[in-house]
Design a protein around this nucleic acid. Structure first.
Ligand SMILES: [Mn+2]
Ligand SMILES: [Mn+2]
Ligand SMILES: [Zn+2]
Ligand SMILES: [Zn+2]
Lengths: 146, 146
DNA sequence: AGATAAATGCAACAGTGTTGCAGGAAGGAG
DNA sequence: CTCCTTCCTGCAACACTGTTGCATTTATCT
């Protein structure tokens, strides 16, 4: 399912900007910051329009949103047929390359809190070094010391 | 143990500003944003000095840090004798009053990720409505409809 | 094609967090 | 106690994310 089709299944209007933005998210399939999305759009695209499109996608439920370790929101287009609520899974953030990935295979833990407290959602972010950055670092060390 | 004692147990210098800042954190015992800390300090206190003090406390291990749902860091002074790494517990954030609390009694879940991936830490934040705000809301509803 | 509701771009703003630098204070040595 | 060194403080300036208001343009329906 491409961006056009997905947008036509919602109540919002289909515009070139929105199609382009959703297209970027569908291409990468990992949570992206507004900045990362903007870098893959035609230069000169207005920041505000991008922010508003992302918020709208979120409201329509065609993307989910995670906060990374720098305090910026990242948006990710999920497969429309995926089980469970969108974004209802943990994420991993690499502090070296800055990328984030969805840990779709895991579910969020259940925690028992006070009986009156209302838990509306959970954010679980693991952070560290992704395997790609680990491999790169290992290679560099080997070639450096030999 | 008060702020003065804690600071003297570290390698950093004891200054009035730092004593005041740590004092605020010890008073509240919940993760506070720089803004919340500043509000409890003598007016005119420089923002940058506050940020630097908090970062230093973090490096020295006398506070821990959590990111809230608005993307701002919150700092919390833990009991020095508490078991486990500081901040190694989940948190709850209330979207009504904005307060955050430490769920000290719970531990962070273990997730199996790829063998090469290095997991350095985890952030688990539950969000919703704290019991105090739930109670307030219930009262308001009752008095409003009666 | 025309009407209408909504999307876009622009300017301006609020907030968090960082850096560089000059002056001032803390803590140790004598 | 006094001096000296080191580091802390406050200020100005900056980068970045995210929001709001408004005028103009565009998508969609009739
Ligand atoms: Mn995800
Ligand atoms: Mn905590
Ligand atoms: Zn990486
Ligand atoms: Zn509350």
């Amino acid at each position: 399912m491409d961006a056009r089709e997905i947008l036509q299944n919602t109540s919002i209007r289909l515009t070139p900007v929105r199609e382009a933005i959703l297209g970027v998210l569908l291409n990468e399939r990992c949570p992206m910051s507004y900045r990362e999305v903007a870098a893959r759009l035609p230069e000169g695209q207005d920041r505000v329009t991008l922010y508003r499109a992302l918020s709208l996608f979120l409201k329509e439920g065609i993307v989910h949103r995670v906060m990374d370790m720098k305090g910026t929101w990242r948006f990710c287009a999920h497969d429309p047929g995926h089980p469970g609520c969108p974004g209802n899974h943990p994420h991993f953030a690499c502090r070296v390359c800055g990328r984030m990935e969805c840990l779709m295979e895991h579910s969020l833990p259940h925690l028992e809190v006070g009986p009156e407290t209302v838990v509306e959602g959970k954010h679980l972010v693991l952070y560290g070094i992704c395997w790609e950055c680990v491999v790169k670092k290992t290679r560099k060390k080997e070639t450096g010391s030999s």
